[in-house]
Design a binder for these strands. Sequence first.
RNA 1: GGCUGGGUAGCUCAGCUGGUGAGAGCGCACGACUCAUAAUCGUGAGGUCGAGGGUUCGAUCCCCUCCCCAGCUACCA
Length: 519
Amino acid sequence: MPRFFLTTAIDYANGEPHLGHALEKIGADTIARFHRQLGYDVHLLIGMDEHGQKVAQTAEKEGVPPQQFVDGIADLFQAMWARLGVAYDQFIRTTSPEHKAAVARLIEQIFAADVSLPEPQRNFYERSYTGMYCVGCESFKQPADIVEGKCAVHPTRTLEEVTEHNWFFRLSAYTGRLKQLFADHPRFLEPESRRNEILQLLEQGLDDISASRSRFDWGVPFPRPLSNGDTQTMYVWFDALPNYWTACFFPGYADKAAWPANLHVIGKDITRFHAVIWPAMLMAAGEPLPAQVWAHGFISLGGERFSKSAGVKLQLAEAVDRYGVDAFRYYLLRDVPFDGDGNFSWERFEEVYNSDLANTLGNLGSRSIAMIEKYRAGVVPAAAPDAELFAAHDASLVQARAAVDGDRRYRPHEVIGALMDVARRTNEYIQRTQPWVLAKDPAHAAQLDSVLVTLEASLATCAAWLAPVMPEKMQALWAQLGGAGDVARARLDQRIDVAGWTVTKGAPLFPKPDAPPGA
RNA sequence: GGCUGGGUAGCUCAGCUGGUGAGAGCGCACGACUCAUAAUCGUGAGGUCGAGGGUUCGAUCCCCUCCCCAGCUACCA
């Protein structure tokens, strides 16, 4: 069985999970579920990035030791993932001893490689760095961020010229190899818009980056002391990025999380770290590279750019409660293209819920199951589904497959679109064949059989293909259709044989909001 | 400022290397049907394909200029 090891960005532990986190995790979870149903041995890695100055500061503000603080945040995130049906296989935390040990190991691996290099080419070297430090931001400012000699964010404070002595990583040495990587593997970074940005960056040439910090200690100690004897803390990205690699050093995960990963799902804002720094680190360590990095877009709220203040406007719990988890997952994935940005609005949510879920899909289930019950006592006839209709369906499924496991990957919204085509086409088919007319004349029994199997088979296809998006609802549909066991085990690359299944009409799958529940 | 990607029906968007009448979904209007969650099916409304110019027998798709939007322009993550 082919492996499919995918990861999401580990979330920075200085706040509660919000809509942006949810989009990425639901997207990755759905991609993972699709692959499970396509016969891959899937490993989905998720986790928390828990080190760094900001986390330490936030913890201090809360008056809690940092470890205790991040423990609490991790609980919040895991509870949210459970709520959203994000079925990860491994949850990594950068504060765990296994991770810290493995990070040190990766760094040492780079030092080991350095031994054979002449000094001017070594990956890690010590260097003094002088920059303008803003006390308000507690960080160094780049020239572009400085306005009239002051930090743009804190114009009342004076910038201090500060010199730090750190470990540096010779990122500049990888410009050529990275260019080669992008040339040899055009799909290493997608979508294309993000790839273009990185190509431009590489064209400019890369600067070395610092790999350790002296100003705080909430992190992994850099494994080697400086020549002056000081031990510094690793720059958070040097601690965070390797999580994908350190995952396999946790007990029980040696095989499941074996490096390299097939896919890193990340947000477009951290493209550079994943498409430049991380590959360079791996090259330095002599490790294989991940097959692909996918940078998804952002979701805004009511047209406004997502921000901490905006985050208050939408409680995830509220969004989930309104129409249920699965409808929330569906809405996000359907309305936010995974290769671009999208917007969240309750108006759209309602439109999509009513139109796609209640009217098109839900009602298709209701009417089909009702007819099988009424005309055939609930037993699906042993006939062949309509060949012409299924030829059209199959064409849709080819598109769907391409959007998760082919040329168009990874675009769950296109999978959804293809399956809605299947549902709409099936509703159309009902209108065209008019089974209620066929039912009136026993002479048309065979024809009616054919129509009913076709409906059942179409619905089973929808249930199987949409299960990754809406696990619970599609399980319910599957059960109503009389499918055995778990819909999540239904293979997407095989035709589902529905002959002989016994349907059971239950409550509407997607009740209208104003309808009494269960009506 | 530089670079990248965009500006197509009320909304969200498809339109590969230029060519018979510019599309889909939603929304809207009208009609049909009754199996179904007042759901479904059909029809329609006719949008200067951002603006101007150019190349061409012919451009939404090629070139130039301009306007507008978004992103990137490196050590917060």
